[in-house]
Design a protein around this nucleic acid. Structure first.
Lengths: 158, 158
DNA sequence: GAGTCTGTACTCGGATATCTTCTGTCCGAGTTCTCTAGG
DNA sequence: CCTAGAGAACTCGGACAGAAGATATCCGAGTACAGACTC
């Protein structure tokens, strides 16, 4: 079980985009330089966030990415699932219905108990991430650096 | 993020092994037939559980696998982590220390805030799985099938 | 008849290919700004 | 001097290779039982 590193990039990245001056966008080049990330690959993950309705993208010289909604309405869970997908990491293959002591289909109306156990854990994980909003992510940046960040974003906004 | 299917196999498998008559082992062939699984690949995961101290393996004609400890002392979390590893699915690459607005090392004594958020979610996931023991897994098998299972295990024990 | 020895059959364990998924990259479509030319 | 037009530069988006990990498999090492042989 491994999370894509795009999750880390986007959790940091959305926190940066959220600091952009109102009405301005952050170009992916600016974001890539911010953390010294490969720009082309970063694009892939940004695109996923646009599809998920978390960011909006505008093209052209003054284009870039900005939040699609209020930062308080966007959760870390949404960001993670935009990249990793919302499917559970545990996929029940119904092996109980196979083999020598197969469970007859009429007893399989309810999901497999193992599957329930795993899903419950997954829900606990999701709940934890749902409690964190982009506002919280913004607060994670040390204050001294926040000023530098905002200055840089303002300088790159056109 | 995807869990190996070995997790499903072993959660079911340990539940089966736990039903073996006292003093007997379950051969991997018997376990493979139980759910119609590829025996050779199943071996890989069983080995992982032996390394983790969850099962003990004995060779020879009457050999096989049995629980290394009391079923009430073995948690689902142990089984999952024996296969997937105990590392967090989120690995912090410390990208905050890179790029144009890099955080100076003296401010990085504490772990990155993003990392903390993800680790908290991971701990919630682990806690949920830690609450489930092998005894619980045994109870997940419907009673009517449990009798058939025990009979089969007794017939294959030598 | 009892004990011992040898052989066989059965078990698990490590090393080895194949394939899907993540990682990384490139070039094309679209838009806005700017510069220039004309009125 | 002002306005309109065309060009250029900058943006994002989808299609294309390479690498790492999961999946699947085989053959070898070790052990307990069973049979046969000897005393």
């Amino acid at each position: 079980m491994k999370l894509s590193q795009g999750v880390e990039w986007m959790l940091h990245g959305v926190g940066v985009i959220a600091h952009a001056p109102p009405g301005t966008s952050v170009a992916r080049r600016v974001l890539a330089e911010q953390y010294d990330l490969p720009e082309a690959y970063l694009a892939k993950h940004l695109k996923a966030l646009v599809r998920a309705g978390i960011l909006t993208a505008t093209t052209g010289p003054a284009g870039g990415f900005r939040l699609a909604r209020d930062p308080a309405d966007i959760t870390a869970l949404e960001i993670v699932e935009a990249i990793e997908g919302s499917a559970s990491p545990f996929v029940c293959q119904e092996i109980r219905q196979r083999g020598l002591v197969a469970v007859p289909p009429e007893l399989c109306r309810r999901p497999c108990g193992i599957s329930t156990v795993m899903d419950r854990a997954h829900q606990a994980w999701r709940e934890s991430l749902r409690d964190v909003t982009v506002v919280d992510l913004m607060r994670l940046i040390p204050k001294s650096l926040r000023d530098k960040l905002v200055a840089r974003l303002a300088a790159n906004a056109r």
